[in-house]
Design a protein around this nucleic acid. Structure first.
Lengths: 249, 249
DNA sequence: ATTGTATACCCTGTATACAATCCTTGTGAA
DNA sequence: TTCACAAGGATTGTATACAGGGTATACAAT
């Protein structure tokens, strides 16, 4: 089917000089921890974007990232395609990719959808969560209370709280829809939870939501979740005066 | 930040011997129509799934698909990763991929989320659509009326109607969330619109929704869109007695 | 000085070679 | 008979080679 004329050249004809460094820097597929290099690349790039080390609007090339991450273009390429489909990168055919940029209006759109989806998840959770799932939620909030001043510990717990609710809502499509929105959160820059007063407020809201869930009061859980999202947006907007990655429009 | 070592080689130094065969077997990236092979592969596989030529639950390997599509593993791999992230394929590390399978409960979950998102889109559309967008919607429905018995023509128009509403809703995140859900529609098998009575009913519902949008009545548009989705689910459920790809649980 | 054209270069898109991993299966011993 | 374990095959994960597209720049022509 492919009448290619094969002037088969040995691909390994590269001169041996530098072979030592090669071997020393040998990378196994799925190195060590079972994660593929493509996954590593994906996470690294995402993290760099979230931390602002790669500014929004920056131009990225496969070779550049491959050099930075110490791997070949193939897994980098895969990672870039994935980030593109998540919406973090904007691919320009034959010309590399741009780091997506969100303005204030985009952020408001994002929160508008979150105000739709997260309350639905809370309500479904109130209806369908098992007792052990509710116990797990309580445990997360108990630990959350202990680290309100420590964002590095708090942020994963916050994430876990939301993930557990979503899991208990028993709807893979709700999960997918929310994931599609959450994917762009790295573009928003620093989390609200870096600010301790807001962290305390958010924690209290979590407690209230969980209480409603525990009482199987779906309507109240829904309402509280909506105001939780809405409060989070207000905090973000208030902070935009500062150094956020979000461009003021 | 680009530690590229440039061993600048003359790219034009290719010897002329064998040039004829090369030209005969020429493969261009982004062949002809501007679409990359990876995109072609993605669409082909998706289509094969939708049409049931690849049954749900089937096991796929990269080489197999590469052979079928007449291209190398690289673009196929890219396509599979994309379809995996859409949720159509389930990747099993080192073991290939499975075509995802939805049961009735999954379908009900999907429609539950659509009942949340599509009414929101209709409402936002009613608030924000320009007059020319509304005119475009009218035009689509006018053409829809003419092909109610011709699914091949009807289905793209139906899609266009929903896309135009989504576009007019002016919310990229709503768009992303709905896209995440729609991505799995190919797994549902045959469209409801193959059935002319249902096509007529759906068309009438479209007209009603558009009328509400034209009158800028967001609440009514929302309500009508919800019942449109709900009706669509009922039709799907009624058809599951038959030959659907959906497995009865 | 400005515009048209050729050319060189960077980067992507694709193919293929190679390495690592997983699963299967067969063989041996308890 | 059953379990442990090793060898082998199948398939993915990764690296690299190569061709083609897109753009900028230099040079020529007006």
């Amino acid at each position: 089917m492919a009448p290619r004329s094969k002037t088969r050249k040995p691909l390994r004809a590269a001169p041996d000089e530098g072979a030592l460094e090669r071997i020393a820097a040998r990378r196994m597929p799925a190195a060590g921890d079972g994660r593929s290099l493509a996954e590593v690349a994906c996470d690294e790039i995402r993290r760099a974007i979230r931390e602002g080390r790669v500014p929004t609007g920056a131009h990225l090339t496969e070779m550049e990232l491959a050099g930075w991450l110490g791997m070949s273009r193939t897994p980098v390429r895969e990672a870039m395609r994935r980030l593109e489909s998540e919406g973090l990168l904007l691919n320009q055919p034959f010309r590399g990719a741009l780091v997506m940029r969100l303005d204030v209006e985009d952020m408001q759109q994002m929160f508008a959808v979150r105000e739709l989806l997260e309350p639905a998840a809370a309500a479904a959770c109130a209806l369908r969560a098992t007792e052990s799932e509710i116990a797990a939620l309580r445990e997360v909030l108990r630990r959350e209370a202990e680290v309100l001043g420590n964002p590095a510990a708090l942020i994963p717990l916050n994430r876990q709280f939301h993930d557990l609710i979503l899991e208990a809502a028993r709807n893979q499509f709700l999960k997918k829809a929310i994931a599609a929105v959450y994917a762009l959160i790295p573009l928003l820059g620093d989390s609200n939870l870096l600010d301790e007063p807001h962290a305390r407020a958010a924690h209290l809201q979590h407690l209230a939501i969980l209480e409603a869930i525990g009482e199987r009061d779906a309507a109240r859980a829904e309402l509280l979740a909506r105001s939780h999202v809405s409060h989070s947006l207000k905090c973000r907007l208030a902070r935009i005066e500062g150094d956020s990655q979000i461009t003021r429009s």
